[in-house]
Amino acid sequence: MTLTDAPGAANAKNAERYLRLYRQMTKIRAFEDNANALYLSGKMPGLTHMYSGQEAVAVGICEALETRDKITSTHRGHGHCVAKGAAFKEMFCELLGKAEGYCRGKGGSMHIADQANGNLGANAIVGGSAGIATGAGLTAKRLGTGDVAVCFFGDGALGQGLLYEVMNMAALWSLPVIYACENNLYGEYTKVEEMAAGALTARAAAFGIETHTVDGQDVLAVNRLAESLVARARRGEGPFFVVLETYRYHGHHVGDINREYYRSKAEEAEWKSGRDPITNFGKWLVAEKIATAEELDGIGEAIRAEAEAAVEYALAAPYPGAEEVAMHIYAGSAHA
């Protein structure tokens, strides 16, 4: 257990913040458990990618952001969406293609966006949102809003040229962007070492961007780093590049069951049993006497009940009417 807030840091003033970190991570896990079950039972169409295991990354960073700050997300994006403040009901509705979804069922799992909370959307093109996040940084700088943009992407996106083009410009123009590289060790079905030569941070360092590497399973470490970088980015010291070492519990997508050919069950078991971000943070909360084990169980129970109720609601919710198929192609006009 490597939680890094110093002993005694957990005073009453911070207790609520710590519990919120715990709740947010638990919400992501509960959301993914339900999404996984929906998919496997044939109730959810399409394809989906589970975020379970990486909760400390999304929560550690998003808890350092304000609602007005922007994020861009990935195909493995449910965690970012929850962490940035989205609600279960609208999310499950979106996953099921229902009219009450965040995108009226038009985006689905891989394109879920929540503009009100600053989530500019998940992106099904690996690395495809790097330009959008950088553009959000450009807007913040041009308009002097003080907003920060966080670009979440996986280690697989390091293969995309777009990322290097926009990091170059972000560095040239000192944009308030944090490039958050979630290294979960596998790009789709391939180990990162087989796909990325050299050090991951060296890529951004080449542009003169300040880089960091952090344990992505330690929500406090992630959050503390994020708080610092966000504050500095607001002051115009960006951009930054952070590698967050983490692990995805499921396969590349739901249904990627037989995956021994690229990673062992022993490795998965080791991460789940020894480095689970929620379990470890829970132990720390108990050790710091911020909450009892029973209280944490109660939090988990309440969140799971909330998730199940949202699933029931979404399953019963109506699909969008056929008239919506040709809506929203162009602004202000219902039809193409």
Binding site: K70, T72, L120, A130, G131, I132, A133, T134, G135, A136, G137, L138, T139, A140, R142, L143, A149, G161, L162, E165, V166, N168, M169, L172, W173
Partner: peptide
């Protein structure tokens, strides 16, 4: 500040324009 010379990175500056447009520019 408003007439930005970019590197020779067409996907990059097009992508940045998309993000800027989505956020108020």
């Amino acid at each position: 500040e408003r007439i930005l010379d970019t590197p020779i990175s067409e996907p990059g500056f097009t992508g940045i324009a998309v993000g800027a447009a989505m956020t108020g520019m």
